[in-house]
Nucleic acid binder design. Structure first.
Lengths: 184, 184
DNA sequence: GGGGTACCCTAACGCTGTTAGGGTGCCGCT
DNA sequence: AGCGGCACCCTAACAGCGTTAGGGTACCCC
């Protein structure tokens, strides 16, 4: 059982000081969300001025890209394990996807609310996170995309409080799950 | 055939000057997106200083809520007509949903990227936009929510360029459509 | 002793939403 | 004729944002 990022391709590409900054930024993001993630707040948590952050990271977009890359790495880990350990891979994937979003709502938001800064991401992480889904649909691209759209829609509509707060979404997930399973 | 908002509940609640400001804001939003929608830009297009806008609208959130309310009104119109005119209501709804998002991508974003400012919306518009979907699923809430999640996921992932730019999404929509239709 | 590098600083620029306080012109009432 | 109120706009300012320019200090190695 692995716990915590022992060897992250994203972190290993950064200098130690930059890793420290990304770590602090991640904590701030998890606690207070993307709106609170300002260079001045990060700097003050690290113990330096905002301007000094630029000694270690090119700009804010690069910092966000590092956080997003870390998110993809965690997703790849979670999703691969979920699919491998289950005989109903699509259901296992749905559960894992939901759990990731619920445990890291702010990170999930950061990863999905805008077009990806692909040129700044750690190479390969986006594809690695998508692999489990392609496995679960046996390479059916349309099936994979449609199911992903459903899962993302469910998660982001819930995070944005678009469903009634009292709504029990378990049967809704079930509905989508059987719908896509029966339409192989 | 109606064209343009002849009588909008949202606009009728505003003073003429406020209506003018919302109209200009809508044009700016459609042309340049939510990031460009600043009080100073809106003011300069109206011909007054940003500070003077606060004479007519309480704050920026109120202005955004007006734009969102207008979006819901347009959706209700489109969706109602689509469902009424078709014998495959779910497919008609999917097409109408897609078209709305493609014709007003910036407005669609504004309407979905954050929790709704419900206390500032025109009362009833959110429910009015949802009605056609509930009709199309014959009141099945789980079905309605699951399908909405799929549709929103498809739209927003495409707007955020998460699918490959060359991807043909027509069969993906078809996949989701048949999946949800066959699982009545 | 000198060069390089790792690291941090202050000051500033132009942008953001927003408030305080002051002004002008017009319309209707006494 | 004067006065209240309203509709409307102004400047100045505040605290925040990302970012750059330019300067400084300490260390390590040749």
């Amino acid at each position: 059982m692995r716990h915590g990022p022992i060897a992250s391709a994203t972190l290993s590409r950064l200098t130690p000081r930059a890793q420290e900054i990304v770590r602090v930024a991640r904590e701030l993001l998890d606690r207070e969300g993307p709106e609170a993630l300002s260079m001045r707040r990060i700097g003050s948590l690290v113990g330096i001025r905002a301007a000094s952050l630029y000694e270690h990271l090119r700009d804010k977009q690069t910092l966000e890209a590092a956080l997003i890359s870390l998110g993809f790495e965690e997703q790849a880990d979670l999703f691969d394990n979920a699919v491998a350990a289950s005989d109903d891979p699509l259901a296992a994937l749905a559960t894992a996807y939901r759990q990731f979003a619920h445990k890291q709502p702010h990170l999930y938001r950061l990863m999905t609310e805008r077009p990806l800064p692909r040129d700044r991401l750690t190479p390969g992480v986006e594809a690695a996170a998508a692999k489990a889904l392609l496995d679960a649909t046996h390479g059916d691209l349309d099936q994979a995309r449609a199911f992903w759209a459903f899962a993302h829609g469910m998660v982001i509509l819930e995070l944005n409080q678009r469903f009634p707060p009292t709504a029990n979404l378990d049967p809704t997930w079930q509905k989508g799950l059987t719908a896509f399973r029966d339409t192989q």
